[in-house]
C-alpha cells in the first residue's frame, strides 16, 4: 500500500479490462496509467464505445479490473465507497421517490450516525445547492431532464464525496440547459474543492471545465492517447473564453486528436 499523496489522489496503474461475454472475450482497456491530483478536475474524452464509462466504473468500484491496480487516497479500490459518488449518465433517479427522498436515501446511508433532523437539513442543503428547493417534493417524472440531472448531482454532492465521478452528466440535455448546468457545476466544484472525473464527448465542455483533458484512443484495447493540460485561470467565463486564443488553441488540439489522429472508422 502506498501513502496517500496529494499528487496521486486517485491512481490507475497498468489497468486492463477484459469482458467475458457469450461471444468470447473483449479487451476493452489496456495499460491505463493515470494519476489524479487532489482537487483536480479531469475530463475523459474519446469516441463512443472506446471505454470511457468503463474507466469511470472502475474508479467507482462497480467493476473490477482484469489486471492492474486502482487506488483512492492511498487505499486500493475494492468496491463502491461513500468517498466516491457517481452522477449517472441517465440520472438514474428512483421514479417512485420524490427528489427529496432520492437524495435522502444517499444521505441516510453515509451519515448514519446523525439524527433525522440533521439528515433532513443535509438533504435540503444539497437540493438548495442545485437550485431545486421548490421542486423537492416532486417525482422525477414531474420535472424536466435538466432538473433530473441536477437532482442526480445533488444526490452525489450530498454524500460529501472526496471524488465526484460524472458519466456524461449533461449528454442528454439541450445546449442551453447544458451550458447553464456547466456553469453551475463549475461554481459548485470551486466551493466544494473535491476531485472530479467527468466523462464527456463534448470538446467545449471538456476544455471549459477541466484542469486536464484525458484523450482516449479507439477500442478495442483502448488506452490513454494524450493528456492535455488546461491552464486557463479560474473562474472561467464562457463568453470571454470564446475569443481567448489559448482556449481556442486547446480546443483545436482536442479536435485534432479526435478527428485527425484517432478518427473513428465509419462503421
Amino acid at each position: 500500500m502506498e501513502k496517500a499523496n496529494a499528487d496521486k489522489y486517485v491512481q490507475l496503474e497498468h489497468v486492463d479490462m477484459t469482458f467475458h461475454t457469450k461471444k468470447g472475450t473483449f479487451n476493452a482497456l489496456k495499460g491505463i496509467n493515470l494519476n489524479i491530483k487532489e482537487g483536480e478536475f479531469i475530463s475523459i474524452i474519446g469516441h463512443s464505445g472506446c471505454g470511457k464509462s468503463t474507466v469511470l466504473n472502475l474508479i467507482a468500484g462497480l467493476l473490477q479490473p482484469s489486471d492492474g491496480l486502482l487506488f483512492c487516497a492511498g487505499r486500493e479500490i475494492a468496491g463502491p465507497g461513500p468517498e466516491r459518488a457517481v452522477v449517472f449518465q441517465n440520472h438514474s433517479l428512483l421514479p417512485w421517490l420524490t427528489c427529496f427522498e432520492n437524495v435522502y436515501l444517499a444521505v441516510e446511508r453515509v451519515f448514519s450516525t446523525e439524527t433525522k433532523a440533521q439528515l433532513e437539513a443535509r438533504t435540503h442543503a444539497a437540493i438548495e445547492l442545485v437550485g431545486l428547493s421548490h421542486s423537492s417534493d416532486k417525482r422525477p417524472n414531474e420535472i424536466s431532464g435538466g432538473m433530473k440531472q441536477r437532482v442526480g448531482i445533488a444526490r452525489a454532492l450530498a454524500m460529501e464525496p472526496k471524488v465526484l465521478l460524472l458519466d456524461e452528466p449533461f449528454g442528454a440535455l439541450d445546449a442551453l440547459t447544458r451550458a447553464n448546468l456547466q456553469d453551475e457545476l463549475m461554481k459548485i466544484m470551486a466551493k466544494s474543492g473535491c476531485t472530479a472525473v467527468m466523462v464527456t464527448h463534448d470538446v467545449d465542455e471538456a476544455v471549459l471545465l477541466s484542469d486536464r483533458v484525458v484523450m482516449m484512443t479507439n477500442g478495442p484495447s483502448a488506452t490513454i492517447g494524450e493528456i492535455l493540460e488546461v491552464k486557463l485561470p479560474r473562474p472561467r467565463a464562457r463568453l470571454e473564453l470564446a475569443e481567448d486564443q489559448e482556449y481556442n488553441h486547446l480546443r483545436s488540439e482536442v479536435l485534432r486528436f479526435l478527428y485527425e489522429r484517432h478518427a473513428k472508422k465509419s462503421a
Partner: peptide, 12 residues
Amino acid sequence: DYMNVAKVLNLS
C-alpha cells in the same frame, strides 16, 4: 442502473 445506484450508495 437502479442496482448500480444501490451499489454506489451502498444500500443495505
